[in-house]
Amino acid sequence: MLKHALAVCALATSLSVSAADLQIEIEIPRLDVAEYHRPYVALWIEQDNQHITDLNVWYDLKMKNNEGEKWLKDMRQWWRRSGRSLELPVDGVSAATRAVGTHTVNFSRDSAALKPLKAGNYELLVEAAREVGGREILRIPFSWPAQQTQVARAQGSSELGRITLTVNP
């Protein structure tokens, strides 16, 4: 189920963010559950429902014999679009799971992740799946490259909190 809660506003003045060309803030919500495991999270970019590039995959990298990879398929859209064809771990994409809170990831236009982006309209996808928990996927449209700073948000309702995408010109 896709939940859209989208707000796009062009900011007149440039924000004091770092030199990141694309910045994503991801809120991992605090959940009142008896058994909590940090969610697996995949961040990637699509165009017309076609996978373009992976930004990040957060999963349990430290388990022996790579057993943490066993649950990657639970992010089933990402697994279908990209994960199943990857040789893991992927440098610059694979990363450890994150704790409850808001996390910021930055990408420069020269990074391996963003280099494939030609000018056009895209969607950021954020998919989260949690052991003994649920799964949620959010989409945020954006255009690339930004003519002016674009800020777009989506609000998750279960496994994800607020996602904020900032694209700087």
């Binding site: 066993k70 398929k73 697994w79």
Partner: peptide
């Protein structure tokens, strides 16, 4: 029927 991981 759809699996990830090393040798599931």
């Amino acid at each position: 029927t759809v699996l990830s991981g090393e040798e599931p």
